[in-house]
């Protein structure tokens, strides 16, 4: 059984088989962690819409310009442990709903320890699934308050 699974995985990798939706989500996070901007962008549909802690990026270009760099910085500085995942949808439209335990340390030494809730919608385009929607939120009220303040006060880096 293990051999069959390994052969299936090997053939998928060897012959470039398209990723399933959950793998696309994981690949996006890996690209951020690896500081690979082009790889992260390549997984996004040109019709992307992002809801992120009360902020809206109405286009993929807006997300790429405004928030992807910050998301990359956070991905590099933190550890995201997948806790739950539910995949759904059918045909060309799929969903991947995940929760992560995010831990790390902020610039000033304060610890990061929160639950991140992530909704990802994907659409098949050609032979590949691409992300058409992200929605991130968290259970941490202090984080949400900081996000609200920063949205109205702070300049971008």
């Amino acid at each position: 059984m293990r051999l069959a699974w390994a052969l299936a995985l090997w053939s998928a990798l060897a012959f470039g088989q398209a990723r399933v939706p959950a793998e696309v989500v994981d690949a996006f996070h890996a690209a951020l962690r690896n500081k690979d901007t082009a790889a992260a962008l390549s997984l996004l549909d040109r019709g992307l819409l992002v809801f992120e802690f009360g902020a809206v990026d109405p286009t993929v270009e807006a997300y790429a310009f405004r928030h992807l760099p910050f998301d990359m910085d956070v991905a590099v500085a933190t550890r995201w442990k997948l806790e739950t995942r539910r995949v759904g949808g059918e045909g060309n439209d799929r969903s991947v709903l995940s929760t992560y335990r995010v831990t790390g340390t902020q610039s000033d030494g304060r610890p990061i320890d929160l639950t991140m809730l992530e909704t990802v919608l994907l659409r098949r385009s050609g032979d590949a699934f691409r992300i058409v929607h992200f929605h991130w939120s968290t259970d941490d009220p202090a984080f949400l308050e900081r996000a609200r303040k920063q949205r109205s006060q702070e300049p971008a880096r």
Partner: peptide, 16 residues
């Protein structure tokens, strides 16, 4: 960009 900052960046981490 000043009016736009929010998101994961509400976590204050060093630039990568």
């Amino acid at each position: 960009a000043g009016a736009a900052r929010a998101g994961h960046d509400a976590i204050d981490v060093d630039r990568s």
